[in-house]
Amino acid sequence: MTDTTDTTATGELAELAESIFAEASGTGTAFDAALWKTLEGSGLARLTLPEAAGGSEGSFTDAAAVLTAAGAHAARVPLAETDLLAGWLLHEAGIALPAGPLTAATGDLDVADTAGGSTVRGELRRVAWSRAAAGIAVLTPTRVVLLRPEHVTITDGANLAEEPRDTVRVDGPATTAEIPPGAAEQLRLRAALGRALLLAGAARGALTASVTYAGQRIQFGRPIGKLQAVQQQLALAAAEVAAASAAAWAAAGAASADGMTAPSTRFAVAAAKARAGEAAGAVARIAHQVHGAIGFTREHDLRLSTTRLWAWREEDGSDAEWNAEVGAAALAAGADGLWPLVTGRP
């Protein structure tokens, strides 16, 4: 099931992204430098950034096409981090973007201004892909900070999918700038949107793998996909994939149309990350059940999708956290305000 059936520019972009990420699929855990080079060469690495920041000036809907494909193929690159988060934050703050992959973090660093610039000191936890990044954009309570690899010490860590989530220590010089207005909230929403899109993609990847496997695995003299019990489970998974995908794409559409900080976008992103997170567990469970024992081993690639589903549903706000925000908004709206809250803008 594809994310979009249109033939517009976004549809073409989706096709391009699909072919690039499908080509790059592999089972390691390290940063995929060759893929990153391809993404840079095709203008996808900085898709939504302005031209002045080396970007392609794409919309969030364009980003949806690329990030869902990245998620579906378990791409080992900090794409959302570079494009949606670090690149945006640095550019907004007026800090020149380093070439290469970037990552972003929010954390409390001590920033001291000195004659020749700033020095920063402190520790950041669970920073995505920092060991591969040419720059780490940090939003501290007081400043936007750009850390360069030569000034940090990295201790490797990982999420459930073995993606880098490192501890970064810094005690040295850094470029800093004033925090653009509303940056913290926007960064949080951008991260959740990017993660929701990746989740929708990973869910699609797990479903595709399961449908393929069900067509190949013979038991009782026929492919297990011919068994109604298996078909019903896969149909349930397909419904969850469709929901995650629709929610994430709709949130991207809201961000494209109304801007990332509009109240309607905020509601959409919250609902989308929550819905995609809820779908993740259901899809992973069915995918593993259909694959049987082999999917539960390292000899099979199903884990590349399912471990990402389990990891990503917790990252950038879990479904519990985002649902709490949606629920608080619903309770604040009250019985008569609930429906207008759901319909939002026309």
């Binding site: 929901a243 959409a268 925000e325 949606v326 759901v342």
Partner: peptide
């Protein structure tokens, strides 16, 4: 909030 939010996210 979480239970209501889950329903509303699904509805949306």
């Amino acid at each position: 909030e979480r239970e209501i939010g889950s329903l509303v996210s699904r509805l949306w």
